[in-house]
Design a protein around this nucleic acid. Structure first.
Lengths: 349, 349
DNA sequence: TCAATTAACTTTATCGATAACTTTTATGAA
DNA sequence: TTCATAAAAGTTATCGATAAAGTTAATTGA
């Protein structure tokens, strides 16, 4: 039933040339005369020849493919990141094999093994929340396949990374809040064991120290990255007896949790409590009041990650490299005091 | 520099058996004794053997891989759909090769050719807004690779599809609006040339006819699926001189455009104009007032699409099949009249 | 007891290409 | 005229597996 697929040999036989001649002609190799090349290409098109990548890659030991591992797809940040990676890869004539760990460390390992088996030329990964084990990365290294971490980075010698400047990004946001006039500042933070939690915490501390503001431990809670973490975090702060004027949250879902908690408590943003978060999303724009944030330029992140892995692929002995992408603030209706109209100049939508 | 990768031959030589014995042992073939199998598996693990899928697939003529083509990733519907496809494929031990057309018909063709070259076992596609040409699908058919359309369907004989029940979904929404008490109903619709536009239009007409309501042509505009289409559409209706009580929009971005237009005009939702849309998203939940909609169960869609393509793969002579997934209404703060509290029972978040 | 079967491997062919040589013919410089 | 070189192919080996058929010794069964 399966129709026979056309191969180089089929074309070769019809034209009474060797298979290699056909292969070369189709690749535009100068060995083959213009005439021959043309007639080969014509016949190939006529027969609907479709090159077999498995054969090609097996033979050439190049797959022209990059593996991408992310924790989630249906998420603003990762969705945009993935799209940027695809676009950049497409421009460079590389294919992407995307796999999704669903924030599951074991599944992540399975996916990495699959990518190794597929003999991808390189791997770009944003690790799951729960990734601890280094073993699989050693295996990758042993096979000589370059790997680049994006955004969620494991600090293992020998691997390059592209990350958002989490620390200075957070610094900027806190500093902005201080300029707006706040001094009682809280933080619903992420856990320290993952770089994006850790770095953002440091940025918060930097800014407070830099501006000689004391950190009130009642106003700082640590937790995960989801809405419920934000909700519970705010409730905990509320129950401590006093509220800060402004709260920074480690992600936008955490901020959404705060919105819900504030609403449940009959309070109002930004009157009773003002807020900013790390990370942009569609929702930031449409929620009311619209939510100012530290923006991660996902397009630059994705582009850099692809470019970096390509560097590694084309130059196997390259040293590791750590790229930080600067953030910018997107100011909307939160954390903008009326008496500081000048800030509005920076506003983006 | 590239470290030598371990092959079946390496293992075979070390144990003084043939390569085929190793291959069979690793696959758990009954030909090989328990002892031999065990020692082979142990050595394979010890050496860090990683099977070469290209060689395996070339030889076995199966890739255990499904190609997926979507127009976008960073979009609520497609993001969720992709995630469902990945999850279902993962459960069935299939890999997914995802490609993104970015709503570009030429890019879509390139991607399809790539998937053919990769010799995927089957293809799942949601076509771009601008796909017209059938030629590439004929090529797919000629190669005997099964293909299933999801959501955005081209009606070509021989191809199966999985789609949302757009027509009855829209019918339900309009009927709900009528039950809520509206009779002056408008529609910001999609173009007729794509199935999701066409079917939703028909559903709208069905419902109006069924309830003996006249369609006011001033309140019906056709356009694309984006925010600007919603904005312009509403402005056009507004300029016609009279407003309906309720508007249905073909997608949620179109509804967001209406929100913006309504705001710019100094009107209010739902007081001055009430609204529902086809398609759910995060934003529907967080925008104010939160936006009721026809929900497309992306998990069922993705799951069915994978299951259907697997059926085709395992049974090459199977007849085409057209699956429709029923929708449900998600009722939030729009299109819920106070005097109809009973409706609130259905509310989901 | 002897053909038939089975367990456990091995051999050979093949999948569809590319890499690295080699060959043949034509061309041109010395 | 002769030798070197270039143009345009062709040959051979190989990539790393699996499929299918073949081998050998031990076991079975009537």
């Amino acid at each position: 039933m399966k129709p026979k697929t056309i191969t180089l040999d089929d074309i070769a036989k019809r034209l009474n040339v060797s298979r290699v001649t056909v292969s070369k002609a189709l690749r535009g190799h100068p060995d083959i005369s213009k005439q021959t090349t043309e007639s080969i290409k014509n016949l190939a098109k006529e027969l609907g020849y479709t090159p077999n990548y498995m054969a090609r890659n097996l033979s050439s030991k190049k797959s022209h493919t990059i593996g991408l591992v992310v924790p989630k797809i249906a998420h603003f940040f990762f969705g945009s990141l993935i799209e940027a990676v695809y676009d950049t890869a497409f421009e460079n004539n590389y294919e992407i094999i995307l796999t999704v760990s669903q924030e599951n460390a074991e599944r992540e390992i399975k996916h990495l093994q699959t990518l190794l088996s597929m003999r991808v030329d390189g791997i770009i990964i944003s690790i799951s929340e729960f990734t601890k084990d280094i073993e699989i990365f050693n295996a990758v290294q042993k096979m000589g396949i370059p790997l680049v971490f994006v955004d969620r980075v494991m600090e293992i010698p020998g691997f390059s990374s592209v990350a958002v400047a989490d620390r200075t990004g957070t610094f900027k946001a806190i500093e902005h809040a201080i300029k707006v006039g706040y001094s009682k500042i809280g933080h619903i933070a992420g856990f320290d064991n993952i770089n994006i939690g850790n770095k953002r915490n440091l940025g918060f501390e930097d800014a407070m120290k830099h501006h000689n503001l004391a950190i009130n431990p009642n106003w700082v809670v640590q937790g995960g990255f989801g809405e419920e973490d934000g909700y519970n975090g705010f409730m905990k702060i509320y129950k401590s007896g006093s509220l800060p004027e402004f709260i920074f949250t480690v992600t936008y879902p955490v901020a959404l949790g705060v919105y819900a908690a504030v609403d449940d408590l009959g309070l109002e943003i930004p009157k009773d409590i003002d807020i900013m978060c790390f990370g942009n999303s569609d929702i930031n724009r449409f929620i009311s009041p619209s939510l100012s944030c530290v923006n991660q330029p996902t397009d630059k992140l994705g582009k850099s990650a692809v470019e970096l892995i390509l560097e590694h692929i084309n130059n196997p002995n390259m040293e590791e490299k750590h790229i930080e992408i600067e953030t910018d603030l997107i100011l909307r209706e939160t954390c903008v005091r009326n008496n500081l109209k000048s800030d509005l100049a920076e506003i983006q939508i």
